[in-house]
Computed example of a mutant assay.
Amino acid sequence: MTQSFSDRIRTCLFSFDQGFGEYRNESFKDAFVFYLTLLFAFSVLITIVIAAGLIAFGPELEIPNAALLFIIPAVFFGSLVGGIISLFISAAVTHIFILLFKGTGGYLETVRAACYSMVPTLLIGWTIIGAFLTPYWGMAIQVFALHEFHGVSKLEAVLAVFIPVAVFVALYYMFIFALVFSAMIFNTL
């Protein structure tokens, strides 16, 4: 039996350590429609926040009003399209590690886990506090969802979530280091 929309949100936010058994036999469509609904609401809210900032600070930043007519819809559609694309790409990366740990589910189960892990971000990620808190909350949700959907241990689910994050962070800092180091070399010439 499919839970109501509000029950799904409550499960994802507050009972994720025990609630994903109910979603084990759920279809991909149900999880994806749930995600798209929240993504649409998030896109509207983030667009409002950015539009308010641009309207308030646009004159000081010398942004012409005509540019706002392009920027504001671009933020909305960019958020929608970026949310969909990033969902599938991040699930693909995570799924590679799930396969290494011999998970039993397919790629769509990993996408379903990613859909549920994004609930905190889509609900409060548009706020300043939410932007800092929700990635960690979402990773915890994803660990429990992967454990349930793929039949891997919780440790394997943790590794499948955190190894790609650690690799990304290491590559990011290596890139920054390379930029700083190259700037130092070119400034001394």
Rank of each mutant, 00 (worst) to 15 (best):
Thr121Arg: 10
Phe32Asp: 02
Leu39Met: 12
Phe70Ile: 15
Leu80Asn: 01
Ser117Asp: 02
Thr104Asp: 12
Gly58Asp: 13
Tyr116Thr: 09
Gly103His: 07
Ile63Ser: 09
Gln142Arg: 09
Leu108Gln: 09
Leu123Asn: 03
Phe32Gly: 08
Leu100Met: 14
Gln142Cys: 09
Leu146Val: 05
Leu108Cys: 01
Trp137Gln: 09
Leu54Ile: 10
Val143Asn: 10
Tyr116Met: 06
Gly138Tyr: 03
Tyr136Leu: 15
Leu133Asp: 02
Leu38Thr: 11
Ile96Glu: 01
Ala113Val: 03
Leu45Lys: 02
Phe34Tyr: 13
Leu133Pro: 03
Phe34Val: 05
Phe97Gly: 07
Thr104Leu: 04
Gly106Ala: 05
Ile129Phe: 15
Thr127Tyr: 12
Ile55Tyr: 12
Leu100Cys: 12
Lys102Arg: 15
Phe101Gly: 05
Ile63Val: 15
Leu87Val: 09
Leu54Gln: 05
Phe76Asn: 05
Leu99Ala: 06
Phe40Leu: 13
Met139Pro: 00
Ile141Leu: 06
Phe57Arg: 11
Trp137Glu: 01
Leu36Ala: 02
Gly105Asn: 05
Gly125Tyr: 07
Ala56Leu: 15
Thr104Cys: 00
Ile50Glu: 14
Ala131Thr: 13
Phe28Arg: 04
Val75Ala: 04
His147Asp: 01
Leu69Thr: 00
Thr94Cys: 14
Ala51Ile: 07
Ile84Phe: 08
Thr110Leu: 10
Thr37Asn: 13
Ile50Val: 15
Gly53Ile: 11
Val81Leu: 14
Ile55Ser: 11
Ile84Leu: 08
Ile89Asp: 02
Ile72His: 06
Ala113Arg: 03
Ala91Lys: 06
Ile128Met: 07
Ala74Pro: 00
Asn65Ser: 15
Ala56Lys: 15
Ile50Arg: 07
Ala51Met: 13
Ile63Glu: 14
Ile55Ala: 12
Gly125Phe: 09
Val33Thr: 14
Met139Val: 09
Ile96Asn: 00
Ile48Gly: 01
Asn65Glu: 15
Gly53Cys: 06
Gly82Thr: 06
Asn65Pro: 03
Val49Arg: 14
Ser79Pro: 06
Val111Gln: 04
Arg112Tyr: 00
Leu68Ile: 07
Ile85Leu: 14
Ile72Met: 09
Gly82Asp: 08
Ser79Val: 04
Glu148Pro: 07
Leu45Trp: 04
Ser117Gly: 14
Ala140Asn: 05
Leu38Phe: 04
Leu61Ser: 07
Thr127Val: 10
Pro135Phe: 09
Leu146Asn: 08
Ala66Val: 12
Leu108His: 03
Gly78Glu: 06
Ile71Tyr: 03
Glu109Ile: 00
Ala66Phe: 06
Cys115Gly: 02
Val93Phe: 13
Ile96Ala: 13
Ala113Asp: 02
Glu60Arg: 13
